[in-house]
């Protein structure tokens, strides 16, 4: 038995217009990984590879100790996946879906399912075609949660939800974690949800993993610094400063390696640090993407 809920090693998938390259990703049981990236970054492809729905060209994938795709059937019994296509039958009711999933998965918890119907403000006798988008998302999530899977793979679980529904969904996801053995990987472009829920953060852009770190150490590294310079004549050249703005004596810069050594370098370069502010994950996301794309061009 391994302590990892899943691992991807050197995973590569080639498409005519898109490449997922050398993906290295893993997660310890009981943790939450927030998977962030712009549209088309490869988040859904990664999740689908883990579910064996898409086969990778190179690399190794293990989910709950099972190599994928070879043992995907064994893995799927213990994994709950909610993708973007929700796979609900429009002419059937939610109750029909619940009965259907219960027949397939022995781990189905009917009491919990009924509780979730109430908490998600749904009606079991309503047909799927009469549901709003938010209700469909919650219904699909209910069908996954009530199986009490060890690993939840959720593709954009909060996208398109109104604030009340979002809160209900996030609340249920944290409740899952009361059990230390259960693990969640969820993709999102809502950085606020990711910042709140995740223990670890992975950034994907254009098929490449560009950051993968503990959320707290990650947020700790990034700062916005306001500097005063003794003279504003030459451009400020200190390694570790990204996105330097302001040409005169007052300069604002963003850094991804805040700490004592940067402070010393700044003093040596003749600057005084005026203020140091933490950044939100959203600000970091935007700054990090900009530098990644500049590197790609260079």
């Amino acid at each position: 038995m391994t302590d990892l809920a899943f691992s991807l090693r050197g995973v590569t998938k080639h498409y005519p217009h898109f490449d997922l390259r050398d993906l290295e990703l893993d997660l310890i049981r009981g943790q939450v990984l927030g998977f962030i990236g712009p549209n088309g970054a490869g988040k859904s492809t990664t999740l689908r590879i883990m579910m064996g729905l898409v086969h990778h060209d190179e690399g190794r994938v293990e989910v709950l100790g099972h190599p994928i795709p070879a043992e995907q059937i064994q893995a799927k019994k213990r994994v709950g996946f909610a993708g973007e296509d929700l796979r609900l039958y429009s002419h059937a009711t939610l109750a029909w879906h619940m009965a259907f999933v219960r027949r397939i998965f022995p781990s189905w918890d009917d009491a919990y399912a009924r509780e979730l119907v109430k908490r998600f403000d749904l009606r079991a006798d309503q047909k799927v075609k009469g549901l709003s988008h938010g209700q469909r998302v919650k219904a699909a999530l209910l069908l996954v949660l009530a199986r009490r899977p060890e690993l939840l793979l959720l593709d954009e679980p909060t996208t398109g939800l109104d604030p009340v529904a979002r809160r209900e969904v996030l609340g249920e996801l944290t409740a899952v974690l009361a059990d230390e053995e259960r693990t969640i990987l969820f993709s999102s472009h809502n950085t606020r949800d990711v910042e709140q829920l995740s223990d670890r953060i992975a950034f994907l852009d254009r098929g490449r993993l560009i950051e993968f770190d503990d959320k707290e150490s990650f947020l700790d590294r990034w700062r916005r610094i306001r500097l005063q310079r003794s003279s504003g004549d030459e451009p400020l050249d200190v390694p570790g400063l990204l996105d330097v703005e302001g040409g005169g004596r007052l300069v604002t810069a963003i850094t991804d390696r805040w700490g004592g050594s940067l402070r010393r370098d700044l003093t040596r370069a003749g600057t005084t640090v005026q203020t140091v502010e933490p950044l939100t994950l959203e600000e970091i996301f935007v700054a990090r993407l900009a530098t990644h794309r500049e590197e790609a061009v260079a």
Partner: peptide
């Protein structure tokens, strides 16, 4: 604590 506040364990 994390579950009650709906934030991550690491926080």
């Amino acid at each position: 604590f994390a579950v009650a506040l709906r934030v991550s364990v690491i926080t």
